[in-house]
Design a protein around this nucleic acid. Structure first.
Lengths: 343, 343
DNA sequence: TATTCCTCCCAAAGCGCTTTGGATGTCCCT
DNA sequence: AGGGACATCCAAAGCGCTTTGGGAGGAATA
C-alpha cells in the first residue's frame, strides 16, 4: 500500500529527481507535470519517509523543549495548555519533539546537549525573566529559537512572541479608575518573571497617570494557583481600608480571590470589582464564574500554535514570519466590574 | 569534531560492520576488539546518527503520546508530572515524542493516524476507564503500547503499569477503622476513571470487613482540583453527623479539604482525620502541610520513567520487562490521623 | 593428513530521500 | 545558419547507518 518515491516515479514514468522537485516546489518542473505528480500522490497516498528526509537533508524536523521541573513552575496548569497549542500545530507538519526535563540550575547544560545532539533544529523558550541569561546563551550556541514572552533588559534582537502585558494591565487599571476605583490591588504571578514585572508596570503607569500610586502592600506575587489567590485576597480584605478593586494575573488566581470575596460576604461587581487575565483555559471559563469575570484575554493555546508555526517555518524555510510579535490582549467587560462603592 | 561510523572504523583499522556490531552488542566480535571500539567511542565522542539508524532499521525511535484536551483532564497537574518522568527517561535513550493533542471523540482516529504514519514505534495510554475501548483498538491496530493504569473488564492481556489502588485505599481505610473511626468519607477522582472505581472498592471492602458500609452520601467524585476538595469537605461538614475521617484521592484535593476543615474550626488529627493519596508532586509535599498528612504514596514521575523504560526496552529489544506491573503504594503515617474523637 | 566447525572480520548492498551536474530539445537573436 | 538562453528532465552520488553473505585462519575431529 505505502509507496515510496521510487515507485511513485515509476508509476509516473518520471525520475525520482523530478518527482522530488515537483513535491518540494522547485521551479524547474513543468506546471503540467507537477499537477500530474500531485494527482498521483493523492491517488497513491504517498507520504515521504521522514527518516530518509532527515538523513538526506541533515535536518532533524523536530523541536526541542526544555521542561522546567522546578517547584512552582510545573505546578503551572498553563504549561499544558501552551503545549497543546504547540503540539497541535507541530503534528500537522509531522514534526517531533524532544522533551527535556531539566532543573533550572542545569538548563544551560541541557540546552547545549540538545543543540550538540543534532536532534533538534530549533528550541523553544519560556518563563522569561529579567536579563534572562538563556537568550545570549542560545545566541552563542547559535541554534534557532523562539521565545514565548520577552526578557527585560539584555539583547533585544531575538525572536519572540509575547502579549503586551503592560498594555493589558494598563487598560484594565484604567477601566477601574474610570469607574471611580482608587484603591486597586494586584495579585500577580511570581515576581521574577518578566510578564509579572510588565503587568505591574502597566498598573503603576495607569495609576500614576491618574495621580495615584501603587501601594506596595496591595501588590502580591505568587505561584499561579488558586490557593494563593485566596490567601492574597483574604489579606487584602483584612486591611483597615481594603481595596475596592483587584487585578489578577490569571483566572486561576481569580478563582481563589472570588472565594475569599464571597466568604467575606461581599458582592462582586458592586462591593468589589475584579479583573483577571484570561489565558483561555478550557476548564476555567470566565463567563462561567458565578459572577462572570471581566478579563483581558489572549489564548495561550493560540500562542503555542503560532510559535510552532514560526519555528517550523524557519526550519523548512518556507514563508517568512515576523521575528517579533506582540499580541494585544482584548479587554472584555463582564459583570465582575462596576462603579466603585459609594460613588 | 563529530565523527561518524566510517571515520571511527578507519581510525580503528576495522570495518564499519565490525564497529557497528561491537556497538550493538552482537556476539561475533572479539571481546578485546569490542573494548578497543568502546574506548575509541569515548575518545572521539562518537554518537550514532539517529536519522541514519532510523532509515536503516525502519524503527522510528520515538513514542507517541495522545494528549487528552478535554476539560477536566488537562486541568490535571498530574499529567505534567507524569510526562516529566517519561521524558526524563526517554531523553537518556535519545528517543523522541510525537505529541498528539486530541479531543476524546476522535482519539481513535488520532491513534490510527499515528500508527499509520510510521512515526512512532509505540504509544502510551492513560486515563483508563472501565471497559476502555482503546485497549482492544490498539491491539487491533497491533501497535505496541503500555498503559498507565488498568481498565476494568475487557481483555486482560495487555501491558500495563498500575498501582494497586484497591489495596492502597483498603489499607488506608483499615487504619482509620482501627483508630476507631466509623463515619469515613471519600473525596475521589472522576467516577468514570478506573482508578477512582478501584479506590472506592478498596474503601468499601475494608468497611464491609468491619461490618460497615460506605455511605454513598459520603463518597464524592470530582476533578482533581483543590476547589473541589474544599466543596466536598464543606458539604460533608454540614451534615448532621459529619464524618470523623476522610480519604482524598490526591494531595491536591486534600489541600482543599484541609482548608474547609480549618475554616470549620476543627483540628486535623483529633477532631477529624485525613489520609490522601500522594503522587509525590514536588510542589505539594504532604509533610509541608500545616498538619503533616498521612498518605498512601507512589511517585507518578517514577511511574512515567518506568513506562518509558519498558516502552523503549520493547522497541530496541534489549532486556525483557514484565508485561504487567502492579506497584504497591506505601502507607505513610503522619500527624493528620488520630483516634476517632470520643474514643 | 584431510575435513569440519568455530571465531572473527569484511565488502557491499541497501534504507528512501535530496541534490549535483549534466543532457536534451526549443526558441530566439544576430 | 550558428549560438546562446531557457525550460525540463534524468542518472547517479551521497546522507550514515544496519545487515546479508561470505571468507580467512585456527582448533577440533576423524
Amino acid at each position: 500500500m505505502a509507496v515510496n518515491l521510487k515507485q511513485l516515479a515509476e508509476i509516473l514514468g518520471l525520475s525520482q529527481t523530478t518527482v522530488s522537485r515537483a513535491l518540494n516546489g522547485y521551479p524547474e518542473v513543468n506546471a503540467e507535470t507537477r499537477k500530474r505528480v500531485l494527482q498521483a500522490v493523492r491517488e497513491t497516498g504517498y507520504r515521504p519517509n521522514r527518516a530518509a528526509q532527515r538523513l538526506a537533508t541533515g535536518k532533524a524536523y523536530s523541536i526541542g523543549l526544555v521542561m522546567p521541573i522546578a517547584p512552582g513552575i510545573d505546578s503551572d496548569i498553563h504549561f499544558g495548555e501552551f503545549l497543546a497549542g504547540l503540539a497541535e500545530e507541530a503534528v500537522k507538519h509531522d514534526f517531533h519533539f524532544v522533551l527535556n526535563p531539566s532543573a533550572p540550575d542545569d538548563e544551560e547544560a541541557t540546552f547545549r546537549r540538545l543543540a550538540a545532539s543534532g536532534n533538534v533544529d530549533a528550541v523553544f523558550l519560556a518563563y522569561m525573566r529579567a536579563n534572562d541569561p538563556r537568550i545570549p546563551m542560545l545566541k552563542a550556541i547559535s541554534i534557532p529559537f523562539v521565545v514565548h514572552g520577552r526578557s527585560i533588559g539584555g539583547p533585544r534582537d531575538y525572536p519572540f512572541l509575547d502579549i503586551d502585558n503592560t498594555q493589558a494591565f494598563y487598560d484594565a487599571t484604567k477601566l477601574l479608575l474610570q469607574l471611580g476605583h482608587q484603591r486597586i490591588a494586584l495579585i500577580n504571578g511570581p515576581e521574577y518573571l518578566a510578564f509579572s514585572i510588565r503587568r505591574k508596570k502597566g498598573v503603576t503607569r495607569a495609576l500614576e497617570e491618574w495621580g495615584l500610586g501603587l501601594d506596595e502592600e496591595l501588590a502580591h506575587h505568587s505561584v499561579m494557583a488558586d490557593e494563593y489567590g485566596y490567601r492574597s485576597m483574604q489579606r487584602f480584605l483584612e486591611r483597615p481600608a481594603p481595596p475596592t478593586a483587584v487585578l489578577c494575573s490569571s483566572t486561576v488566581l481569580a478563582l481563589g480571590a472570588v472565594r475569599a470575596i464571597n466568604r467575606a460576604g461581599l458582592v462582586i461587581g458592586s462591593d468589589i470589582s475584579i479583573i483577571a487575565h484570561d489565558d483561555v483555559l478550557p476548564m476555567l471559563k470566565p463567563e462561567n464564574f458565578s459572577v462572570p469575570l471581566t478579563t483581558t484575554r489572549s489564548s495561550l493555546r493560540a500562542a503555542g500554535a503560532r510559535i510552532a508555526t514560526r519555528l517550523i517555518g524557519g526550519i523548512v524555510g518556507r514563508g517568512d514570519y515576523p521575528q517579533q510579535e506582540l499580541w494585544r490582549a482584548e479587554l472584555i467587560v463582564r459583570a465582575s466590574t462596576g462603579p466603585a462603592p459609594g460613588r
